[in-house]
């Protein structure tokens, strides 16, 4: 039997189109997504990325759940969430072939970097990262470099058949302020970025926060902040180059 409070929310969403009810269901079952994602986090992927991917499976499950089936939402959602994560491993992940050992070291460094930053009260050096991870400095540098070949799913990746992106689906605003009128968003190339990327660039390049401060503010790892900054700058450069090329071609 489906939980009565789940049923109320599902009916509000289904019958009244209440997106807030849908958001509540998503938030309620995110711990399940995290639990399932953790099973796959040893494969060299960031847990938070897997949680985001699993959340897409959860949203699909909520959207497709048949109230008349008489099964728990968790029973229906679990294989959908796991399926989404497995599909990610088939389709996405590392943009270039990276040896498993380097992927694993990169994952380890993500954790170690945050731990050492908290412990030392400053960003660690490469020798400190090497010592804490038990790896040679050269390997640490290589693992950090290949980390930029990792392509985590964007939070604005489509979450289902509708046109809601994941942020909208979860119903959580990532930052407390609006960036819509900021000059950041008016700058060329910024429209190609998603909300989180814009937020991170704003914090780094207009508010002057360090990567570790941004990581704490946004709630992701410092390494992930670093990746997002680089990827966003590349996106902006590519967008501007495309615009210039298009104008030249006119």
């Amino acid at each position: 039997m489906i939980r009565s409070d789940d049923e109320i929310l599902l009916r509000r969403y289904r019958e009244e189109g209440d997106l807030e009810a849908r958001g509540q269901l998503i938030e309620r079952y995110l711990p399940l997504v995290r639990l399932l994602a953790r099973r796959y986090s040893y494969r060299g992927e960031q847990l938070e990325d897997l949680v985001q991917i699993g959340a897409i499976g959860l949203i699909k499950a909520i959207d497709r759940f048949d109230l008349e089936r008489g099964v728990e939402l968790t029973t229906y959602a679990t294989p959908t969430i796991v399926g989404e994560i497995k599909r990610h491993f088939r389709d996405k992940g590392w943009a270039i072939r990276v040896p498993r050992s380097l992927q694993e070291l990169n994952t380890q460094l993500t954790r170690v970097l945050d731990q050492l930053t908290a412990q030392l009260g400053r960003s660690p050096t490469i020798p400190e990262l090497a010592e804490a991870s038990g790896a040679e400095e050269e390997l640490v540098l290589e693992a950090l470099e290949v980390g930029h070949a990792y392509a985590p799913l964007s939070l604005t990746a489509r979450g289902g058949d509708d046109d809601l992106d994941l942020i909208e689906s979860i119903g959580v605003e990532e930052h407390a302020y609006s960036v819509s009128e900021d000059r950041v968003t008016l700058a060329p190339g910024f429209r190609a970025l998603d909300d989180r990327e814009r937020t991170i660039l704003r914090l780094r390049f207009f508010e002057g926060l360090t990567q570790s401060q941004i990581a704490r503010r946004v709630g992701i790892s410092q390494m992930h902040v670093s990746r997002l900054i680089r990827r966003s700058l590349e996106t902006i450069r590519a967008t501007i180059a495309g615009d210039v090329g298009a104008r030249a071609g006119r």
Binding site: S123, I126, V140
Partner: peptide, 19 residues
């Protein structure tokens, strides 16, 4: 980037400075 990283390692620069 790797060469800069190697030098940063030798000079014991922090990860954030290297970035």
């Amino acid at each position: 980037r790797l060469v800069i990283g190697g030098l940063a390692s030798r000079l014991e620069l922090t990860y954030e400075l290297l970035e």
